[in-house]
C-alpha cells in the first residue's frame, strides 16, 4: 500500500525545508507527566517537547497511552472523573494545569479532532460557527460568515458544501464529516491542533484527503496526531513519538525513527513484531 522509496524522498525534502528544532522554542513542553485512571497507571513519566508549525505523530500499539497523553494536552482528561494528571505541561511557557488556567480558554487555543467524526446535530454552518459564537470571535454576522467560509475552505470542504450550509452536518459522508469537524476545530483559530486517530473511521479516499489537509495545516498550526498506522505517521509527520505500555520509548525525527530506530522496542513495532 505504501511506496517506501517514495516516502523516503518526501521525508528528505521536509528535512531540508523546515527542520531546525534546536533553534525554536517548543510550542508545548511536557515534563514528567503521569496519568492515573483510578488505580491504573496509564502514562508513566513522559517528557516531550512539541514544536510549532510541525506535525508530530504519536504511534504505538493500542492501549499504549498515546490517546491518553494527547487528551492531557488540552485537559480533556478533566472530563473523566477518575483521571488524575501529574507533572507539568507548558504551552508557550505557561503551565496549563495551573489552577488559574481555565480549561475553556486552553481548549480554544488547543483544538481537537476525534477518532469518530462527531458533528453536532445542527446545520453545517452552525457546526463551524459554534466555536466563534461562544467565544465571541465575530462582531457581526458578516464576520461570522467570513470565519465559517475560510474555515471550510481551509478544511477543503467549502466547494462541496457551499450550496447547502443549512443542511444538517450529520447528513454528510464520513470523510466530509471529519473535515467538517476539522473546520469546526480551526474556526476558533487554535494554536495547536490535536488529532486523535482522525482517519480510523474513514475510507482510503477520505483518508488521503484528510492527510493532505493535515500537511497543509502545518503551515499555520502545531499539529499533534495520534495514529495506529505507521504509514500514516510516516506520510504526514516530521516528528514521531513511539509510546509503549504508557512510556515514551523514543522521540525524534520521523525519518530517523522509521529508518534507524535506537530502541529495540521501536524496531520490533515498526517491523511488525509487537502491536
Amino acid at each position: 500500500m505504501v511506496d517506501m522509496a517514495a516516502m523516503g524522498t518526501t521525508m528528505k525534502d521536509m528535512h531540508q525545508t523546515d527542520r531546525n528544532p534546536t533553534m525554536t522554542e517548543p510550542k508545548i513542553s511536557a515534563k514528567n507527566v503521569n496519568v492515573f485512571y483510578g488505580e491504573t497507571h496509564a502514562i508513566k513519566d513522559v517528557t516531550v517537547d512539541i514544536a510549532d508549525k510541525t506535525v508530530t505523530a504519536f504511534i504505538g500499539p493500542s492501549g499504549c497511552g498515546k490517546s491518553t497523553f494527547l487528551r492531557c494536552l488540552n485537559r480533556m482528561n478533566d472530563t473523566i472523573d477518575i483521571a488524575r494528571v501529574q507533572g507539568t505541561i507548558l504551552l508557550d511557557g505557561q503551565d496549563i494545569y495551573d489552577p488559574r488556567i481555565d480549561p475553556v480558554q486552553l481548549r480554544a487555543q488547543v483544538g481537537m479532532v476525534f477518532q469518530k467524526p462527531n458533528p453536532f446535530p445542527k446545520s453545517i454552518y452552525d457546526n463551524v460557527a459554534y466555536g466563534p459564537r461562544i467565544h465571541g470571535m465575530a462582531a457581526n454576522k458578516a464576520e461570522l460568515d467570513d470565519i465559517v467560509e475560510s474555515s471550510l475552505r481551509r478544511a477543503a470542504l467549502w466547494n462541496e458544501v457551499k450550496d447547502r450550509l443549512d443542511a444538517p452536518g450529520t447528513g454528510l459522508s464520513g470523510g466530509q464529516q471529519q473535515r467538517l469537524c476539522i473546520a469546526r476545530a480551526i474556526a476558533t483559530s487554535p494554536e495547536v491542533l490535536l488529532m486523535d486517530e482522525p482517519c480510523s473511521a474513514l475510507d482510503p479516499i477520505a483518508t488521503a484527503q484528510v492527510e493532505e489537509l493535515i500537511d497543509e495545516l502545518r503551515a499555520n498550526y502545531s499539529v499533534v496526531i495520534v495514529t495506529h498506522s505507521m504509514q500514516q505517521a510516516a506520510r504526514v509527520s516530521q516528528k514521531t513519538a513511539f509510546f509503549h505500555l504508557g512510556q515514551l520509548v523514543e522521540f525524534g525525527d520521523t525519518g530517523e525513527i522509521f529508518t534507524n530506530p535506537r530502541d529495540p522496542r521501536t524496531e520490533s513495532y515498526i517491523t511488525g513484531r509487537i502491536g
Partner: peptide, 9 residues
C-alpha cells in the same frame, strides 16, 4: 467531547 474540545464551558 466535541463541544468541550472547542472550548465550550
Amino acid at each position: 467531547d466535541g463541544a468541550l474540545a472547542l472550548g465550550a464551558t
